[in-house]
Design a protein around this nucleic acid. Structure first.
Length: 752
DNA sequence: AGCACGCCGACT
DNA sequence: GTCGGCGTGCTC
């Protein structure tokens, strides 16, 4: 019986079938194979092998070749990949592509040898593209073609000297610059480009052009040099910190909470050492490349660590493979693609900073990586350990609830936090209290940091008396105040109502839109209030040089979350949050956790100092803020538990599963109609009313000329969510594109 | 993702 | 009358 292979290509498709390559020893499931594809060839991963009927085999083409020197994707990983595709209602190939495995992106030379031309000698290999596509196909079908592929060695085009340095033809005054350039070029052997040579030799580029035109120098293809894998430990590996590492390893540790990134990394070291001692290969998954570099550098002092670079090409990857296996590295650190590594025996998956926003893939499969990582650990039967800034309900749900949960909380810096009630002040955007403290900072030559909200969205309608915002009855969200048409709307489910005459919480008549002031406004206020205090701005637009502050000079720096990456300031005496209300009432049930996360990170800007912390807010009675400023770990923990209970009531993650169904069309009515039709299908299929929120126009309802609307699905479990999504997508409307985001992190995202 | 096919607006 | 826009459909 003929043998066929299922091949997954890094394209938005499921596995497709080919016959095994003719006359070659078969590779197995998980190996890499080259197949004919449209006009050329593609590299894919084998997901299955089976015998097929003769009739079927006649429909199939043969694969071209196995790539035998490649790493095999472990069968657990493959199973996980296919299950993830089902879970996220995405073609498996899209997911495979998102892992950006260098071995699938290898450049290959494709050569063929015709067997129908008797005259052709043994070495009659010719480039495949010298034969017309139709003829190639025909020759293949008739079995008159041998094919082979060889990896292209990546090359750089470099400039090399051709003439000798003493060449008499260059001994003319008019060719003095060419002579200089040639001498420089000969001394170096080669340069990357002509303009580079011009710069080095300090001659005009025209001189280089002449040099080439006259045949004194030329271009040459050179193999790319191997990248330097630099794992030199940094001189001062662990940044200054309050936290002592826990020295007793706890192999059951499932969660590590609090501290700074370096605190958390350091606290993981005993655990990692323990894993290695047991013969395992722990894998550390991080949200961003930057953090991978940092973590690998910190670990390098204590651990045999390998950094898995996700963006490198095939050659670089093979360098990394060698570095891993020959130099005895045992801890693998990397972003999302570490989940497709093949280490001999993975012992644990560490999901570093599970709450990071960067864990959401923003195109393709749009995977929320922590969820996928949890499934990965389950499929590979290794324990999952997470770290996070706080006990986020969603992070905690990723690890099994042992009793008691094996979590290691790291202590908070000693900041004395107070809330400054904006309903009780007349100065704006800085309260009287804040200005008073800033004056002290000025008088005592100290430093202050002011965190301002990002560019705001439309405001909530809040009460000036009690600070409460008007909430949506369906969604646990503050309604957005649309000042122009004087309506309150929910950006999730579309609930639309007129403003209440009095505050629903306290009955006050004093309702107003809660505005947010950006960095420029705050800086202007500072110029009036504390003119002697040097001012700095640090946000996405302007990055002032903060060297004087780091040297201990007095001053105040105003900025957005960019501030969170700064080294702590030496004489800091005030951390001020100019306004949290916008973020607190964002269109999202995660808003409160996000705010707490932000505040906890901001707090670490205190470093080893213990400054005053002040949060300006209209909602000074807000339980989450109260818990944060209380400095009582138990209070914060209880508040997170309460949030978790509230999520349970509304069926939000981690208690329910969300999916965003987005429709885009030229006209908003068409998008809404298509969604209404999808909702009707869902209802026919037995969806409960409270499983469907919307349809509603998207918060940003028009993007690049396309109107956007959405429906949120809220289901009890993943299988049901997948079924409902299939139902919703089962019919299409002309001119309307339906797209899906499973585990959405932001309902305002535009799906590509 | 590519690539072909197909149907409507602005131009040598 | 053609060139070219991108909407839709297919790839073993």
């Amino acid at each position: 019986m003929p043998v066929a292979i299922d091949v997954l290509l890094p394209l938005p498709l499921g596995p497709l079938q080919w016959l095994v390559p003719y006359g070659q020893a078969p590779g197995g499931v998980g190996s890499t194979v080259v197949v004919p594809w449209q006009q050329g060839i593609r590299i894919g991963t084998v997901t299955g092998i089976e015998t097929v009927s003769d009739a079927r085999s006649l429909e199939l083409r043969e694969a071209i070749a196995w790539l035998p020197d490649d790493v095999v994707l472990p069968s657990e990983t493959l199973k996980w990949l296919l299950a993830e595709a089902d879970r996220t209602v995405t073609p498996a190939g899209t997911l495979l592509a998102s892992l950006s495995l260098p071995r699938l992106r290898r450049e290959l030379t494709h050569e063929v040898r015709r067997l129908d031309q008797a005259s052709a000698g043994q070495d009659a290999w010719q480039a495949a593209d010298t034969i017309a596509e139709g003829e190639l196909r025909e020759l293949r079908e008739q079995g008159l073609l041998e094919e082979r592929v060889t990896p292209k060695i990546p090359t750089d085009r470099v400039m090399v000297p051709i003439a000798e340095v003493g060449d008499a033809r260059l001994e003319k005054a008019s060719r003095a610059t060419q002579k200089t350039a040639l001498e420089e070029l000969s001394a170096r052997g080669w340069v990357g480009s002509g303009s580079e040579l011009a710069r080095i030799a300090d001659v005009p580029e025209s001189a280089i052009r002449s040099l080439v035109r006259n045949g004194f120098a030329g271009y040459e293809e050179r193999p790319k040099p191997s990248p330097e894998v630099d794992l030199t430990p940094p001189p001062e590996p662990w940044p200054a910190s309050l936290i002592q590492p826990a020295q007793r390893p706890d192999p059951q540790l499932s969660a590590l909470m609090g501290g700074t990134a370096s605190d958390r990394a350091r606290a993981l070291v005993p655990l990692l050492l323990n894993d290695i001692a047991q013969g395992g290969w722990p894998i550390v998954l991080v949200p961003e490349r930057r953090l991978a570099d940092q973590l690998a550098a910190w670990f390098a002092n204590d651990l045999p660590v390998a950094l898995l670079p996700s963006e490198l090409g095939a050659r670089e990857r093979s360098v990394w493979d060698r570095c891993l296996f020959e130099e005895g590295a045992r801890v693998v650190v990397g972003t999302w693609s570490v989940l497709a590594t093949s280490v001999p025996k993975p012992s644990r998956l560490i999901l570093f900073d599970a709450g990071s926003d960067a864990y959401k893939l923003r195109s393709g499969a749009r995977t929320w990586i922590p969820h996928a990582a949890q499934n990965w650990a389950e499929q590979h039967e290794v324990p999952l350990t997470i770290t996070d800034v706080l006990h986020d309900p969603e992070s905690m749900a990723l690890v099994p609830d042992a009793a008691p949960p094996r979590t290691l909380p790291l202590p908070r810096p000693a900041v004395r936090w107070v809330l400054s009630d904006l309903t009780k002040t007349h100065s704006w955007p800085l309260s009287d209290e804040a200005i008073r403290v800033l004056k002290q900072v000025q008088d005592r030559d100290r430093q202050a940091i002011i965190l301002v909200p990002r560019r705001g969205f439309s405001a909530a309608l809040g009460c000036r008396e009690c600070g409460a915002a008007v909430m949506c009855p369906n969604c646990d969200l503050a309604l957005r105040w649309h000042a122009r048409d004087r309506r309150l709307r929910c950006h999730q489910c579309g609930h639309d109502t007129s403003p209440p005459p009095t505050c629903p919480a306290c009955g006050s008549l004093d309702m107003e839109a809660q505005r947010a002031a950006g960095s420029e406004w705050v800086l202007r206020t500072l110029a009036e209030a504390v003119p002697e205090l040097p001012r700095y701005r640090y946000d996405g637009d302007v990055r002032d040089d903060l060297t004087p502050l780091h040297a201990g000079q007095p001053g105040v720096v105003v900025g957005t979350t960019a501030l969170l990456r700064l080294e702590p300031l030496p004489v800091l005496s005030l951390l001020l949050v100019s306004q949290v209300d916008g973020a607190l009432h964002a269109d999202d049930f995660r808003a409160e956790v996000r705010v707490l996360r932000l505040l906890l990170r901001f707090e670490h800007q205190a470093g080893l100092r213990n400054p005053l912390g002040m949060i300006q807010t209209f909602a000074s009675e807000h339980a989450a803020l109260r818990a944060f400023v209380s400095a009582d770990p138990e209070a914060l923990h209880q508040e997170l538990t309460r949030m978790n209970q509230r999520r349970a009531r509304f069926g939000y993650p981690p208690h329910g599963q969300l999916a965003l169904l987005q429709a885009s069309a030229k006209r908003i009515e068409d998008a809404m109609d298509a969604l209404r039709a999808a909702v009707a299908r869902l209802e026919t299929a037995g969806a409960e009313p409270d499983e469907i929120l919307g349809p509603a126009p998207a918060p940003v309802a028009r993007v690049r000329g396309r109107a956007l609307a959405h429906v949120i699905l809220r289901t009890g479990n993943e299988a049901r969510r997948a079924t409902l999504l299939e139902t919703a997508l089962s019919q299409s409307t002309r001119g309307v594109k339906l797209r899906v985001d499973v585990d959405p992190r932001d309902i305002g995202d535009v799906l590509e």
